[in-house]
């Protein structure tokens, strides 16, 4: 390509990326904007990119006068527990699927795929029916159990692909060097799969953090509500407290952002691992 042509192509390329980024981030921007807009300006100023006056009243209200801190704590407990339990289970399961042949493997993989095929809405009633006599409705542990169950299959496949990317030779070398298979797994394979585990942890955490459907159906009391359910409490029969709702939303973004900030170093490696032979 000639120089001006290449320039045009570059500009077009960057412009397309810019369009996408603006499109993807605009709702977040709007969230932030509404959260700092005083109630009296919300409808009176028309559509403006930034209000003429900003206040933090909504944040103050959400943090001090609503149940939001409780929802937030519940969400933290549920999401972190789910993420860690799923990652541990998926690592062990993914390793087995990657390295061993065992009876029934084909059917187990098939069943795990099957669980991913149905819309979750269909399963809510039966799950409620199962959990209710066990006393697991309206409890965080019940929610964790359900989230773990629904995230393990996908996470296992994800972890399996990371283990597949690590040559078998490495653990064989370790076993010849004098390690048991489990020691080889722990000392050689796990450290190399950290990026994959971080990626899994991140995916599951966000999935659990923003899950609404089950949380809404299985939890009825305020004590065990997670924050997506809590957000709905800002919608009353007669009005929607947009300002407070958005403030709560902004606060809810923080842990997810922090979480990804901490794991992003591994995540980038993790998502590209296996793409090229190391």
């Amino acid at each position: 390509m000639t120089r001006p042509k290449r320039l045009v192509a570059t500009v077009a390329h960057r412009a397309a990326i810019l369009c996408y980024v603006v499109f993807a981030l605009f709702p977040l921007f709007w969230l932030l904007k509404v959260s700092v807009t005083p109630n009296d300006l919300l409808y009176s100023e028309g559509v403006r990119l930034w209000p003429s006056r900003t206040v933090f009243d909504h944040f103050d209200f959400v943090l001090r006068h609503s149940d939001f801190p409780l929802f937030f704590r519940n969400s933290m407990i549920v999401s972190l527990s789910t993420a860690f339990i799923v990652t541990i289970l998926a690592s062990l399961g993914g390793y087995a699927m990657s390295r061993f042949t065992f009876r029934g493997k084909f059917w187990i993989v098939g069943l795990m795929l099957l669980t991913q095929m149905f819309p979750l809405v269909m399963l809510i009633a039966p799950i409620f029916k199962i959990l209710s006599p066990l006393g697991l409705t309206n409890s965080l542990s019940g929610l964790i159990l359900v989230y773990v169950a629904f995230n393990v299959p996908f996470a296992t496949f994800l972890m399996q692909s990371f283990f597949d990317g690590i040559p078998k030779d490495l653990e064989e070398a370790a076993m010849i060097d004098g390690a048991t298979r489990f020691m080889a797994f722990r000392q050689i394979i796990l450290p190399l799969t950290l990026p994959g585990m971080a990626a899994t942890l991140g995916f599951v955490f966000t999935a659990a953090w923003s899950e609404l459907l089950f949380a809404l159906m299985l939890i009825s009391g305020v004590d065990a509500s997670t924050f997506p359910v809590g957000l709905l409490s800002f919608v009353s029969k007669f009005s929607v407290d947009f300002g407070q709702m958005m403030a709560a939303g902004v606060l809810a973004l923080i842990p997810a952002c922090l979480f990804f900030f901490f794991i992003q170093r591994y995540l980038v490696q993790g998502l590209t691992a296996g793409a090229v032979k190391g």
């Binding site: 040559p167 030779d169 064989e172 070398a173 076993m175 010849i176 390690a179």
Partner: peptide
């Protein structure tokens, strides 16, 4: 088990940790 056979092996891929 391999660990109890007291042998050492050099792999084609080297298999360095």
């Amino acid at each position: 088990d391999p660990k109890d056979r007291d042998i050492a092996m050099v792999f084609q891929s080297y298999a360095l940790y």
